[in-house]
Design a binder for these strands. Structure first.
Lengths: 203, 203
DNA sequence: CCCTAAGCGGACCGGCCGGTCAACTTACTT
DNA sequence: AAGTAAGTTGACCGGCCGGTCCGCTTAGGG
């Protein structure tokens, strides 16, 4: 019996604290990346540090759970787009959703993938498959150039948020949209120059 | 008398150690970013940790010196390109040099600019001016679209290395060239879509 | 209402890291 | 060759962080 998670239902206060904790962790990781400390997360949630470790045996487990939520939501939204009549617009919409996450560049934490949590890698795989589908359709419809692969898009999807993160503090919180537009233009067939290196293969 | 650095010439062994230290720091920062520890840098250089702090009062000062070297070399190379007859190619060549730095994504450390070292901000400013020049000429020659500013390029210049850094371990060390080509295509006039947000203003 | 197990929390531990220091070594001067 | 200032070094310090633990609180069933 490996992997059984639900022994019994959570007590009411525990469930509330767990939700507070996850929300706080999401905000804290978004703001400070992997350097966010467990103590700070606990403080932001208004609970004790020990309680964090009661809910998640490890900081990495907490991070995994947060990422799982995000990836799940993004994948679900993306899957709803696969039926769109305009594959190019669908891919752009998906990338917009992916880069949005309140202009944080931390979704990239996903890609580092230190925690090899089983459920997380599975969710990752599901999202990669989705992206492959969106990219294939966009490619076949002529919306993006022929030599772009799903892996390319996986690697590029967090770049707008990351790039915009370097802007000086006063800048528009929507700046990532500017760089998404530029990068997506680079994926279009118009005026495409030949690409010098083969795309990587994802594990 | 503020800013006088050269009281007297360094002793021979001290000069040698300083060079070893800077080389080791460059490699270590490139490999592990800001998380590189002073002890590891010292070990890589084959010197004691105390010696590091004799040469640089602070880890940030050491980092600043390394960045200063890099920015200086890159700026010098870039200034040699401003005379080129093909402004578009000159900009692309500059971006290639910038992203190259052995495919490390850590040049971005520059942009975070925690250390407000006076010389470093000056070097930064000189490089920004250079980039502005290269971009203006490329824009006026029609090599890149009209709505791209120097600031855009400053923010985008490290993206290829950063993006390629997420690729699985076995990938080509030249993968950044692929993403530089894609992003640069996004800067070209052909098939450009209107940009949704104004560019930021650099301090 | 009361009992108990589930949940909570903060003091505590070991390890790491940036930075200091005083004892030791070594390159240059005369 | 000898003196000395410059340079080196590793033990050491304080602070932070992930993770543990045990005494306390409280939800919720009977």
């Amino acid at each position: 019996m490996v992997g059984m998670t639900s022994d019994r239902p959570l007590r009411a206060d525990a469930a509330r604290n767990r939700a507070l904790l996850l929300a706080a962790a999401e905000r804290e990781f978004a703001a400070r990346g992997l350097d966010a400390s467990v103590a700070d997360i606990a403080a932001r949630a208004g609970i004790g540090k020990g309680t964090v470790f009661r809910h998640f045996p490890t900081k990495d487990d907490l991070l995994s759970e947060v990422m799982l939520d995000r990836i799940g939501a993004l994948t679900a939204a993306g899957e709803r787009l696969t039926g769109s009549g305009d594959p190019g617009a669908a891919l752009l919409e998906f990338l917009t959703l992916a880069a949005d996450r309140q202009q944080n560049a931390d979704m990239s934490v996903l890609q580092e993938a230190h925690a090899v949590n089983e459920r997380l890698t599975e969710a990752r795989g599901r999202m990669f498959t989705l992206i492959e589908t969106l990219v294939t359709r966009a490619r076949e419809s002529g919306a993006i150039r022929a030599d772009i692969t799903g892996t390319d898009v996986v690697l590029l999807m967090c770049a707008p948020g990351h790039v915009a993160g370097f802007a000086p503090p006063g800048s528009s919180p929507d700046l990532w949209r500017r760089y998404l537009a530029i990068i997506f233009d680079g994926l279009r067939p118009a005026g495409a120059s030949p690409l010098p290196v083969d795309p990587p293969r994802m594990s």
